[in-house]
Design a protein around this nucleic acid. Structure first.
Lengths: 221, 221
DNA sequence: ACCTGAACACCGTTCAAGT
DNA sequence: ACCTGAACACCGTTCAAGT
């Protein structure tokens, strides 16, 4: 550290530095705050300086999305059932998404490419096949649970910024005769994105997968 | 119709006209194409003309999101089981989302306010309570199925633009020893967002809800 | 009363120029 | 070899001005 300072520290430190600054910006102010100009100024370089290390704004977005996935840290204790292991993994993913709310949409849309994510999927496929599911069904299962996890987390996160009671109030203003159920359940409806609700849906989905599978012998190891 | 033409047709036709033009633009070119300048020019008015009828760009976005939800047209044949009726409704919503890909993220994030959507939720809550679920559980169920439906559809839509084989090719380039499952199932993984996959996950989720419910007497009518 | 042009404070990105 | 300033073609929105 502090060997010498030319213009900036060293040539190739910059890309990592750019991504770190960008991720910090997005975590603090959201994806729409991520502009080339703001990233550049936050690391003390001209906007054009970035283009030496990065081809386009989108490359930064992809880069920080992959960085965020590095948070995922699953210890698969292979003693558990496949249900337990899927639940552990997707609960972790759920938490990682909540930690980087500005990137949820990007991660949702982006095909998996980060090493951490690939490792995780590989492991899940192994677990499911080892439990007697076919390869095709294993893929369908991972896709379904992933869909649920992302879908729930996006909605949960969208509700965090808004005022607690506002949504409820709007529901309560509805005409009683036309919306009896919504009115009675307005309180519940204004608060359906808790961790318990996430768990409820995840459990139901896993239970349905278990119930719906074509019975087969578990593969020997 | 055609009473007289001053500058434009009539005072208050304009807001609907703006929203129609905006929705057409978004359906054709995506949400990022929706700029005040482009909407204005497509209906032959200056950019500032829009601000007479609309306070902000975001008001247009909310407006066209509500318009898109008007496509939902569920005929709830009350003879069916609650599973069948939930499936019918969310399959419809799934199709509506696919028809307006540029709005999926907005609809995903926005709390329900369109009349059509409120009617639908009200009906679903009625069906579920009539089938013996508690109000709280009915809300959790709707939330879970909604999460799955949106999550799946977002991912499905994101994959449509990309080239069929590209994702598969990237998977096949992975090191064999570390990713045996992903390699073997690369074909399936490049193609997990079909309608059959949507149905698979939806069926499993509904099945899990049925299996997991606390047994209770169906409510009399 | 209704619409507009010019302007402000932003964008991503290109390109010729500086050291 | 690396960084930069000015410029281009865009944004949403404000505000004073036109009819």
């Amino acid at each position: 550290m502090a060997t010498r300072t030319r213009t900036r520290q060293r040539g190739d430190l910059s890309k990592a530095e750019i991504l770190e600054a960008a991720l910090a910006l997005v975590d603090e102010e959201g994806l729409e705050a991520l502009s080339m100009r703001r990233v550049a100024s936050s690391i003390g370089v001209s906007p054009m300086g970035l283009y030496r290390h990065v081809a386009t704004r989108d490359e930064i977005v992809q880069g920080i999305a992959d960085m965020a996935l590095e948070d995922i840290d699953v210890e698969l204790d292979s003693g558990g059932t496949w249900e337990d292991q899927l639940k552990a993994v997707f609960t972790q993913i759920h938490e990682t998404l909540l930690a980087h709310p500005g990137l949820i949409h990007v991660l949702h849309v982006q095909p998996i490419s980060a090493e951490r994510a690939l490792d995780t999927v590989e492991a899940l496929l192994g677990i499911l096949r080892g439990s007697g599911f076919s390869g095709e069904e294993a893929v369908a299962i991972v896709g379904a649970v992933q869909s649920y996890t992302f879908g729930f987390t996006v909605q949960q996160r969208a509700r965090i910024g808004t005022e607690e009671g506002q949504h409820v109030k709007r529901l309560k203003a509805l005409p009683t005769s036309e919306y009896p159920n919504l009115l009675e359940l307005a309180g519940d409806f204004g608060n359906w994105t808790t961790e318990q609700h996430f768990e409820y849906g995840l459990d139901r989905l896993l239970q349905g997968i278990a119930a719906g599978r074509k019975k087969r012998q578990p593969r020997r190891r």
